[in-house]
Amino acid sequence: MNKLLKVLVLAEHDGAQLNTSVYQSVSAAQTWGAPVDLLIIGKATNAVAKQASSLAGLQRVLRVDAAHLEHLLAEDAANIIVRIANEYQAILAANSSFSRNILPRVAAMLDVAMITDVLQINGSNTYTRSIYAGNVISTVQSLDVTQILTVHASNFAITKQGADAEIVELEAPAISSKSRWLSQQQSQSHRPALSSAKVVVSGGRSLGSAEKFEQLLSPLANRLGAALGATRAAVDAGYAPNDIQVGQTGVVVAPDLYIAIGVSGAIQHTYGMKDSKIVVAINHDPNASIFQVADYGLVADLFEAVPELIASITPAH
């Protein structure tokens, strides 16, 4: 594998902690065997930078800290990255709504292509990614000098900790002022984060209503200490909020156990869960295509099977 000069990883964090996917994107960056720097942008990022400096295999943690970067806008983030981009032959981040908002802007400013949601890095400039909602795997070779990509975090190992990389402060460029942050609405949940949960319970349109979705799936998720997910059909029908949609246009999950309840198994949905270690599907329709990707399939009336399942489970807490 050809050695690259240097690799930059853009870190996603919430101001207090690094996102788990940073650990995976750093190990993806190490594929090339080149020095890796991690970039942290935000306000009051002391603790996050300290946490990052312990990640194994980092040469430097770059910290760009300013009051106006608290709620990071794509325009400001792109300006910061472009300013240091010429030091790097590859710039990457874990694929998410955060990175996909910023990195295409960076790529266009540098006049290079971007490769979205890389499943595998095959060489200095060759990547495997999926197209058509995961129905086709495509291998592409970039012709650009600078490689910009987002990586499919769950395909990469979690990098070890215990190191002590140097933290370097960089000055923030002037505020771009093309947009202003007004507010945010974080969905409050006592459950684990969907994208990193070990167990996910997911519901489809067969549940029939928002009340039934809640009634049937909440106790099951609570018992298992699981995150709740939903299909697009269930979200569109108003049974579940948009941010728990699993699939091509929602969250991609790869838990140890994925339990699909009343999920038909549309390709757009299975794209988001087919990397799960074990898939259990319960559906009343024996021909539902979810059974083609399920390790264990049960054809049954949801409203009988799920309560029976709940009753049989030893509570998690």
Binding site: V112, A113, I115, T126, S130, I131, G134, N135, V136, I137, S138, T139, V140, Q141, S142, L143, D144, K274, V279, F291, Q292, V293, A294, D295, Y296, G297, L298, V299, A300, A305, E308, L309, S312
Partner: peptide, 23 residues
């Protein structure tokens, strides 16, 4: 073009699972 498509393939399929008859 800034990248060439070297090849495309069908994704690996999950091994077919088993049906169970009860919870």
């Amino acid at each position: 073009p800034r990248f060439n498509v070297l090849n495309v393939s069908a994704p690996p399929t999950r091994k077919s699972g088993i049906r169970v008859n009860s919870v």
